[in-house]
Design a protein around this nucleic acid. Structure first.
Lengths: 335, 335
DNA sequence: GAACTTTATGCAAACGTTTGCAATAGGGTG
DNA sequence: CACCCTATTGCAAACGTTTGCATAAAGTTC
C-alpha cells in the first residue's frame, strides 16, 4: 500500500527548507534561487508529490475549475443522446484542459436553482459554461445578474445581457434554403421546433430566403421534438396523410434529418431525386449515412476555444461580447 | 451586484448561535435541537447560503467528487466521437449525481502518469472511473496498486487485480455469430481490432461459435480501426480486391457497422439479402439507419449504476468484485 | 436538595496551502 | 568599518469548515 500522504511541509523538511520556500519553489517564484527551485521541483517529482487542491483552493479563493452545465430541455431525468451536444462538450473539455483548468460536468439537477450560490459561493468552480439555452433562461439571467462568470452556448442573436457564443443560425437557415432552391426545390419543408432560440433563427433564415425568392407565401413547417424518432414518425405520418407535398427538407439537426430520411427511404421516396435533404451540425453520421447528408456544419472546435477563452477573459475582469461562429455548407449526396 | 459572500460564521451570527451549532444544524446533526436546526436551515435558504466546498473538503479529507477518466486510445489529442462512449459517460454522470457526488471529467492529458497522486493525494476526487482500458493498462495497474479507489469500464474477463465492469463480450460475439448463421450465413466476417481487450473477447466468442458449428477452419477477420470511416474504406477495398467473398458481417461496434453498410449500399450489395450485418452497442443510430441495424445491446444505464455503486462500496472499505452485464440481441432489418 | 444524567450549545484546534512582512547574510560603497 | 542595498529565506496568519471536548442548563433520582 501507499505511504502516508506527503504534504508540503514534509517535502520542505526533506529539502531542508521552510514550507514557504517549498511553496514558492513549486510555483516557480523567482524570489527563490534558481538552484533551490530546481532542487525542490526535482524532489517533488521523485516523491510523486502533489499539492492538496482543497487547501490550495481554500487559500487562493480560486478553483481552477470550469463547470459545464448541460441544460436539458426535458423535465424528465434523461441522458443526453444527441451526438452533437456531446461533441460540443468534448471540444469544450479539450479547450478547458489546454488552459490548465479542470472540467466539472454538471447539470440543472445538481446545481439547483441558485447557480451562483452553488458554483461560485460554493467554490466549486470559477466560472460556468452553459450548453443550451433551454427553457431555463430565467435561471441563466439570475446567475448572470448575481455576477457569476458565465458564457452560454446558444444563439448569439438572442437579446440578453450575458455572453453568448453560437453559430450564425439565421445565415445557416438562409444558406440551406438557398441551396435547396438552387437544386430546384419549389416546396421545401422545415423540420424542427422554432420555439427554441437557435432553431427559431434557423427557421427565420429559412423563411426569409424562401420569401425573398418569391417561392411561397408561407414557408412550410413541421413542428417536432428534436429527435430522430420524432422526425421519423412525423414524416411517416405526413406522407400517409398528405402524400408527398414537399420536395425538400431542411432539418434542424442531423439526427432529425436522418430520422426523416429513414421514413422517406422506407416509402421509396428517392433522395435526392424526389426530395432534397439538408441537415444541421455535421455529426460523423452525416458523412456515413447513405446517401450521405448535405448539412450546415457548426465548428465545435472553434466553439470550445471561444467559450473557454471568453470565460477566462471574464475571470480576468475584461469586458467581453457575444460572438458568432461561421458556418459552412457541406454538400453531399442528399441534395 | 452581489453582497459579500456569506460564510458560516455570518450565518451563525444572524441566527444568534455559534458556528459549530450552525455547522451541525446544516448537516442535520441530531445533537442540535430540532427547532434550532430547522430555523437555521430556513435562514440558510433565505440567504442563499452555500458552504465553501474547498474548506469543507480540506477539513473532511473527502471531496464528494468522482473523476471519470476517458482513456483515449490514440496518442493524438482528439475529441471523442463514438456516440457510444459518450452515452456511457452520460449514464455515469446520472448515476454519480444520484448518489450526491459530482463528476470531474478528465483524461490522461490532465492526469499525467501518476493518477493516484493527481486525483487522490491532490484531493481532486475520492475515486476514479476509467472508461476504456485502452493501451495504458500499466497506468491503471499502477494506480490500483497505489491504493486508488478505482473501477474500470472494460472487459470483465480480463485478468487483473482491479475491479472491472463490462458486458459479456464473449457471449455477445457468440450470439452474433449464431444469429448470422441462423440466417443462413456461411462465411461471416469480423470487423474490428482484436488486440483491444473488449473487442478481442467479441472476436473469440464469434470464432468459437463458428468453429463449433463446423463452418470454417478459421474465422474471417478484417482488422481495422474502430471508426466508421475505417470500416467504410476497408469494406470498399475488400469488395474491389476480393469481390463479395462473405455473406455476413459482425462489426465490433455500431459505428463500424454503419460505415460498412455504407460501402455495401454504394456497391448495390443488398442488406440483408446478400450480406447480413450485426453491430454492437445499440446506439440511437442503429434504429434509425436504413435498413435498421441488428445489434448486440449493451446496457449503459445499468453500467453507470454498477460502476458508481462499486466505486462507492470501495470507498466504504468493502471488498468488491468485477461483474458482467447481460447483453441482448436486438433484431432489426439488417439481418 | 445533593448527586447524577441528559440535552443543547460553544470553544478552539486542525485540515494544508499561500503570502505579507520580517530577518538574515553577503556584497558593495564611501 | 559603518552604512545601505540586494538576494534569499523563514515566520506566522489566514482561508472556512468540522468536531472532540468542555460547559451549562435542565431534568431525574434517592
Amino acid at each position: 500500500m501507499q505511504q502516508k500522504k506527503l504534504k508540503l511541509a514534509d517535502l520542505a523538511k526533506l529539502a531542508g527548507v521552510s514550507t514557504s520556500t517549498a511553496s514558492r519553489a513549486l510555483n516557480d517564484n523567482p524570489l527563490i534561487k534558481l538552484e533551490t527551485r530546481e532542487r525542490i521541483q526535482q524532489l517533488a517529482k521523485e516523491h510523486n508529490f502533489s499539492l492538496n487542491a482543497a487547501a490550495s483552493r481554500l487559500r487562493l479563493q480560486k478553483t481552477k475549475v470550469i463547470a459545464v452545465l448541460i441544460n436539458l430541455d426535458s423535465e424528465t431525468e434523461q441522458s443526453i443522446d444527441d451526438p452533437f451536444l456531446l461533441k460540443v462538450v468534448s471540444d469544450i473539455n479539450l479547450a478547458v484542459n489546454r488552459q490548465g483548468y479542470e472540467l466539472l460536468l454538471s447539470n440543472s439537477f445538481m446545481a439547483g436553482e441558485d447557480w451562483h450560490g452553488y458554483f461560485i459561493d460554493g467554490r466549486r468552480a470559477d466560472g460556468v459554461i452553459v450548453v443550451g439555452q433551454g427553457k431555463q433562461q430565467a435561471l441563466i439571467e439570475a446567475a448572470s445578474k448575481a455576477g457569476m462568470p458565465l458564457v452560454v452556448w446558444g444563439d448569439p442573436k438572442t437579446k440578453a445581457d450575458y455572453v453568448i457564443v453560437g453559430s450564425d443560425n439565421f445565415l445557416g437557415g438562409k444558406i440551406a434554403a438557398e441551396h435547396l432552391m438552387s437544386k430546384g426545390c419549389k416546396a421545401p419543408l422545415f423540420l424542427g421546433e422554432p420555439e427554441h432560440a437557435e432553431l427559431g433563427e434557423r427557421y427565420n433564415g429559412f423563411c426569409t430566403a424562401i420569401k425573398s425568392a418569391g417561392l411561397t407565401e408561407q414557408c412550410q413547417l413541421l413542428k417536432i421534438d428534436i429527435t430522430s424518432q420524432a422526425a421519423y414518425e412525423a414524416i411517416n405520418h405526413k406522407l400517409r396523410n398528405d402524400g408527398l407535398d414537399f420536395d425538400g427538407i431542411f432539418a434542424c439537426s442531423d439526427m432529425v434529418a436522418l430520422g426523416a430520411m429513414k421514413a422517406l427511404k422506407e416509402r421509396y421516396v428517392s433522395i435526392p431525386n424526389d426530395v432534397h435533404v439538408v441537415g444541421f451540425d455535421d455529426i460523423a453520421m452525416a458523412d456515413i449515412s447513405f446517401p450521405s447528408l448535405t448539412t450546415v456544419r457548426q465548428d465545435t472546435k472553434q466553439a470550445g476555444e471561444l467559450l473557454v477563452s471568453k470565460l477566462l477573459a471574464q475571470l480576468d475582469g475584461e469586458q467581453v461580447a457575444s460572438s458568432q461562429l461561421e458556418i459552412t455548407l457541406i454538400e453531399r449526396q442528399s441534395s
